[in-house]
Design a protein around this nucleic acid. Sequence first.
DNA 1: TATTTTAGATGGTCTAGACAACTATATTAA
DNA 2: TTAATATAGTTGTCTAGACCATCTAAAATA
Lengths: 245, 245
Amino acid sequence: MIDKSSPLPIYYQIQEMIRKKMNAGEWEPGDMLPSERIFAEEFEVSRMTVRQAIIELVNEGLLRREKGKGTFVAEKKLEQTLQGLTSFTEDMKARGFEPGNILNYFRETQASSDAAKALNINENAKVYEMQRIRLADKEPMALETTYINANLIKGLTEEHAGKSLYQYIEKELNLKIGFADQTLESAVAGKNEAVLLNIKKGDPILWISRLTHLQDDTPFEYVKSAYRGDRYKFSIHMPRDEHSS
Amino acid sequence: MIDKSSPLPIYYQIQEMIRKKMNAGEWEPGDMLPSERIFAEEFEVSRMTVRQAIIELVNEGLLRREKGKGTFVAEKKLEQTLQGLTSFTEDMKARGFEPGNILNYFRETQASSDAAKALNINENAKVYEMQRIRLADKEPMALETTYINANLIKGLTEEHAGKSLYQYIEKELNLKIGFADQTLESAVAGKNEAVLLNIKKGDPILWISRLTHLQDDTPFEYVKSAYRGDRYKFSIHMPRDEHSS
DNA sequence: TATTTTAGATGGTCTAGACAACTATATTAA
DNA sequence: TTAATATAGTTGTCTAGACCATCTAAAATA
């Protein structure tokens, strides 16, 4: 497993081995890894070398160590980052609301003009399109329309509307999600939004558009959400770099 | 300098020592630090212990190492973060507008109710309060009201309204800026905003509130901005963690 | 039975070296 | 003078231990 004559550092080889086992699902979140001493014995290396491998993975957030207990596979960052930042469900829970959904429609269709532009595809290219009313404590909070590039994300069904789309993409399709760009702008409700959100025409709404990309920068999902201005505030924390004098 | 009998780990003490010297300006960006062996000899500790201190500082971005050459103080990232993210001037330049200001007033007064609440001070505590109309290509873009805790940030004058407040705080007062929390919400313009922003009553506006904190978590600045909904979109990039399987 | 003690396992810190890889400088040979 | 070579100094990697602090579970005790 470990090649001591390789030009690759031993600690690096151990790192890669651990990464692989985690990716293969052999070690799952919460699982305890063999102790440093066991690793050292197994690979016939010094414990410090094992530690060097593990410390880096801990810094990356892949592993978690607890003194006196052991080293564990960390919970997936998946939920913490994009998921946490973009999931309506998580957002509402964090605000103390009970999230809910009403699916207006789910269909496979041709891309509309703005969706095609955002997703960087032709106007007649196939997309999945769905519209949901997002509820918080059973009262409408947002009207959300999602467009997904059907040539990239294949095999999507109405079932996925309720579950985690990102999970499906990463686990089933084995694609890596990269980043998302959002824009926020203020507007007033038109007749359509007013009816669906149970507010009056001319009431303020917050338009949030999200364009989600794969790791290779290909956009695959375009979401337009109209949040009720009377119920929703968008919050953002901007940390200063730790290292700045 | 290093207390081996201290309960604080030696590597941690070395870290703190290095941090202090950098903050004190004794070691400036680009400077080469004493080599690991020199440190080890000076403190009479093992070189591995010195390395543990340095490696963490490198991970934090404070130091930079080059094999065969040495360890150096990294360039600082001052302007990149908060400054870039919160400065109207920078924001407008990036959007291709020519930024401008009209100062409506600057005064030292007692904190209003919501400002006091945000800044976590008494309602009769002294604050600097200023209101500016922010222009983009000579046309109103936002109406901005700023409240600053006058007991924390002393000696502010009308002069500072046009210049960089953060620069003054960090360079002159020697305080460290920590982070900022922003909230965005949609609303419609009242009579006052409509007049000052040259729009109609009932037109959409985007309220952006920012609460800026010092490094010790003390809030010192509260800014309420009303952006014209027809001119302004707020953008945010959400990178996925590099390390996620 | 319930509580306390103890033993064993874990990660956290540290040592006093070693050799490899890389960089810059000084020396030597063409 | 120029090019090749040695040298010294740097970080990178690694060893084979050591002791400490914390946690868990088994064993001893009340």
